[in-house]
Design a protein around this nucleic acid. Sequence first.
RNA 1: GCGCCCGUAGCUCAGCUGGAUAGAGCACGUGCCUUCUAAGCAUGUGGUCGCAGGUUCGAAUCCUGCCGGGCGCACCA
Length: 575
Amino acid sequence: MSLYARFATALDAILDDLTAAGTLPADLPRKNVSVEPPRDASHGDLATNAAMVLAKPAGTNPRALAGEIASRLEKVEGVTAVEIAGPGFINIRLDEVAWRDELAAIHAAGADYGRSRTGEGEAVNIEYVSANPTGPMHMGHCRGAVVGDALASLLEWAGYRVVREYYVNDAGSQVDTLARSAHLRYREALGEDVGEIPEGLYPGDYLKPVGAMLAEEYGDRWVGKAESEWLPLFKKRTVAAMMDLIRVDLALLGIHHDVFASEAELQEAGKVDEAMRTLMDKGLVYEGTLEPPKGEVPDDWEPVELTLFRSTRFGDDQDRPMKKSDGSWTYFGADAAYHLQKAKGVDHLVNIWGADHAGTVKRVQSAVTALTDGKVDLDVKLVQMVKLMRAGEPIKMSKRSGNFVTLADVVREVGKDVVRFMMLTRKADAMLEFDFAKVVEASKDNPVFYVQYAHARISSLHRKAKALGLDKGEADLSLLDGEELALVQKAAQFPRIVEQAALAHEPHRIAFYLYDLAAALHAAWNRGNDHPEKRFLIEDNPEVSRSRLALARGIGQVLRNGLKIMGVEAAEEMR
RNA sequence: GCGCCCGUAGCUCAGCUGGAUAGAGCACGUGCCUUCUAAGCAUGUGGUCGCAGGUUCGAAUCCUGCCGGGCGCACCA
């Protein structure tokens, strides 16, 4: 149990005591009671707002209640002083032993330090990437991929059971286009001069190998035949080929999904009908006509009778069509069924979507609520665009010419770790600039470098210590002074940060925390410049060297664990 | 016109789901390399938290209304 969790438990027991004594009424909600490190270190090691939160419902005033709590807190093991401050904060000072113990706890937990049972083993399905299978991944997909993957491991660290899932949109009209494009490449592979790729088909070279493969396998069997004869086959084969490309791209980022769910298979298996029947049984489906869109009405608008889902019942601003007028499923219709499928066997759903899909969030949440009777919740994380830059100049991309920056190119140029880290240096719903020049720069500007550098320095300490023979024997942690233990204090926050980041579904918090921790390490390191006796390694003082090496090792461990969540390798040295 | 997101130092952004004097980096000023990696550290200047109300012990954070920017708005995916 982390130090903060331990004191939260101790405080809980005290509040139970006060309730038993009649000072506090029974059944007071303690949800907002917190035990945290105060922002200002001069206030002590821990602070709680318990008195302020509980005073009012208890019909007393905060400072009086604080007194009651404080006198009991003083008796808790490891507490050296308790002060009441401001409107009723209770500040706690701990014996330095508490921090030495925490450092020992970091070593003991090792690669697991920071894991918790917050999630109580609940299952979460997180769907991310889900790029249309019409070509290789480009940078537009990259951020969602990294955010989703980091969030998935973050949730695992917090004690959730996680399913990583990719939804393959292989049922829409764009895969027909894909199959036609592949058929053209197929004819080309058989020696036909196809000339320019016609408008409306995918021009990319990546379809050439697919055409060649199909030519190899089928010869001219599908030349000059009606489209209806070859389209289904070409669709299936081309989508499969595209998914292979995409899996390779994802692997470059270290991303591997547990489940690839096919929209086409979902429809063929009758899952969509099933979901709609469920909704019909609940009286949430009807045949009707939608209002024309507000504002600019399209020229070709005309009222059409459609099969609609009553999403307005759940807070959407309009009911949404499940079937098109030709009787086929809408994207939403299939999506509703898909979410029902995902919801079976899990407690929570998370989707990572591009911000341009913001308008569709409510309808899908409505469907999930309706289909699971509110038992499963869906959180949709909207990920904003990445602005690609090169030395301050925006990189122009044009979809029509197929001139977009592929994910593989970027990973090749700057490396997986840089891409992953950078994608997590902003909260998901804020725009992110990715400058090729800056992200490989070896300076403070570049958070990837800065954090890696801290870890590399620690690794370098180990090498040095080994060379000097300073690494042998037990470390006596009591030799660490207050300044050094402040570093432990910073590291000790890691479990809380992981827990809170997981609850908020915000993996970027890990990146910011690691930057902070790295800064603290760099600061401690540089103290040795002005005061040689404060260096981590002192040749003629093996005892002190060992204790400080143990400190550094603890910080290194936390840096590694944080980077692990982000899917970034820790650097042993900078090159 | 409607919905969602955003508005915090000159610039780029954090702000731990309502806490104490709002924080980093860049930029600018000043210090620190016979040194465990100075690729770094320390220190200073810089704020009407878009505006106006409200909620309460307490608001950058929650509510309402404006202002400004982005995205999306019938059967597309």
